[in-house]
Write a protein that binds this DNA or RNA. Structure first.
Lengths: 338, 338
DNA sequence: TTGTACGCGTTATCAG
DNA sequence: CTGATAACGCGTACAA
């Protein structure tokens, strides 16, 4: 069923109804240029009476602005995703922007043409490694507004980015495990190596070991991939091979969940037999059994800030090149405390 | 920084470069109308060489189609949300549609003007109670493509809808608890009453009780609200008041998680002291301790189908008025089996 | 099979 | 303060 053409109200109808020109209607709607209060009132009345809604496409064409920002993610998965999307959606809406979303990964490892770009948005939030560097470079070169989330700018470019203190968070976590809990055999479930968060978290782990004169042992590192299932498999494998560790530091809470499942499956008690800690402090962390000690990352806040930055960039304002949000240790029972 | 105007490639530049008219370029791109293979090749070459991307706004204006579908949700939260969004995004992308997303609730209990509608999308997926009935009626009256997800059509309208067999699933779950496990004192954590899934699930619970001659006891019903925190509070309250039940049926897995947390907090063992079951089979259900017995709802599949339906409606094809997806019992340890 | 030219609904630049 | 009117980039009859 097609849209009823008779019910198609345009700015022309509104102008006629209000007895003014279309230019005036436009001025009233967009608050651009001066209009007599009484004239404006007539226009508003007409808009109300006719239930007029400006056509987004026509607006975009004429103003060269889509009033839309795009969110590019690699995949819609993980507990991480939800607070991020919430932050982005709410902030975009509050800024009067629409939100177009697309996942680049999943099937085709993001090859051109990319679904979001200068042709349909005013700017893009690019999460982690959801867009190949070449496209990032191209967009940046034509001056297209970009903000990176949970990744840093390719060197030379200087695209604004917002992320969290991954390395410091990871380091403090391991510091705590060593200094307060007395562990020295700490295994690490690393994230996907295409993901920058994963890189920094691992570095923090290594740095803390070094500081405490604990030799880095490759056998104590396995792939968690920010994914429950993968983590579960890796930990099961460890156990089968006779893992000799006092604690497992999972690079994110999703993999911590998988690790805990594998340990329990083998009859190991947490934290009596082995401690488990994570990173992110997803909503479920406190509900696990035992509650998960982790590093709180302000995911939603980072998302909000990214959108705010992007809106500024779109408006031509200056923004800081890099925003690093602090992380915080959250001690619960899974690490053996209390 | 503004977009470099010199780098603005339009269909005109492509036509010139290829030595054809803009009409031909348009025909090639949209595969509308016949074009000689060699001509098409020249056009493709030009597009490639100039890195041309059609302007979405101009397209929308000229064709009267935005090539975009909208997703309206009340709030971005709950484990339920993610598989749904994934299904919608993937299917939309596969159908060549962009995805605009907006949450109506949260702050203002969705009052006009609504962010998504006939002015910026070709059709809408409306989740649960994310849009007031009056707006639903208005959109339907002007013939705007609509598909409802996890709710049914207001009577009289007949808007296509996709949802799962909530009542049957809930009924079978309670049947199982009574017949196989022998429980008769079964408490129920109901969902928000604005949510249709919640309504049907409760009805299934009541029906099963009736079938088994178990009197409905209002004291055994409390608010879970499809939310961990609320469920936890409600269950804690029950415990304080001396709840006398053998099992708790949470209307969704989120509230089951909250319930389990509250029970453990009070030192109650699951399922030895009290059984807990949920509804949805979210990804985490299998990872809980003990693993959660629940009703599997094909959330992602429902989302996919909704998009497919919507695309058909947009194309003017017929679709079934109501699609009911089957649910399935998933027995794990939290119910006391095994 | 291809080209010409008009229209889509707004915004923005002019005069007035 | 307000009104004509020329873009905006593309799709699509209509002609050729």
């Amino acid at each position: 069923m097609l849209l009823d053409d008779s019910s198609r109200i345009t700015i022309v109808e509104v102008a006629q109804y209000a007895g003014v020109s279309t230019a005036t209607v436009s001025r009233v709607i967009n608050k651009t240029g001066p209009v007599l209060p009484e004239t404006a009132a007539k226009v508003y009345a007409a808009i109300e009476a006719l239930n007029y809604k400006p056509n987004a496409a026509a607006r975009g064409l004429a103003s060269r602005r889509t009033n839309t920002i795009g969110l590019l993610v690699d995949e819609i998965s993980g507990e991480f995703f939800q607070p991020m999307l919430r932050g982005i959606e709410v902030t975009a809406r509050a800024s009067g922007m629409d939100l177009l979303i697309s996942s680049t990964g999943g099937m085709s490892q993001s090859s051109p043409p990319y679904p979001l770009g200068e042709n349909n948005t005013d700017g893009l939030i690019v999460f982690a490694d959801s867009l190949p560097q070449e496209e990032l470079v191209r967009l940046h070169k034509i001056g297209f507004p970009l903000v990176l989330l949970h990744r840093s700018s390719p060197s030379g470019l200087n695209i604004p980015c917002v992320t969290v203190e991954n390395k410091e968070g990871a380091r403090r976590m391991v510091d705590y495990l060593v200094e307060e809990r007395g562990y020295r055999k700490i295994a690490f479930l690393e994230g996907p190596d295409s993901h920058e968060d994963a890189y920094w978290r691992k570095l923090g782990y290594e740095e803390s070991l070094a500081v405490h004169d604990i030799p880095f042992n490759p056998k104590l590192v396995s792939l968690g991939e920010f994914d429950e299932t993968q983590a579960r498999v890796s930990v099961s494998q460890w156990i089968k091979n006779g893992l000799n560790a006092e604690a497992i530091f999972a690079a994110d809470d999703d993999s911590a969940i998988g690790a805990m499942a594998a340990l329990k499956e083998s009859g190991l008690r947490i934290p009596e037999d082995i401690a488990v800690v994570g990173f992110d402090d997803i909503r479920l962390a406190a509900y696990l059994d035992p509650p998960l000690t982790t590093v709180r990352a302000p995911i939603e806040q980072a998302a909000r800030i990214a959108v705010e930055q992007l809106v500024k960039v779109i408006r031509g304002e200056e923004v800081e090149a890099m925003t690093l949000l602090p992380t915080e240790l959250v001690i619960r029972r899974s690490c053996g405390c209390c």
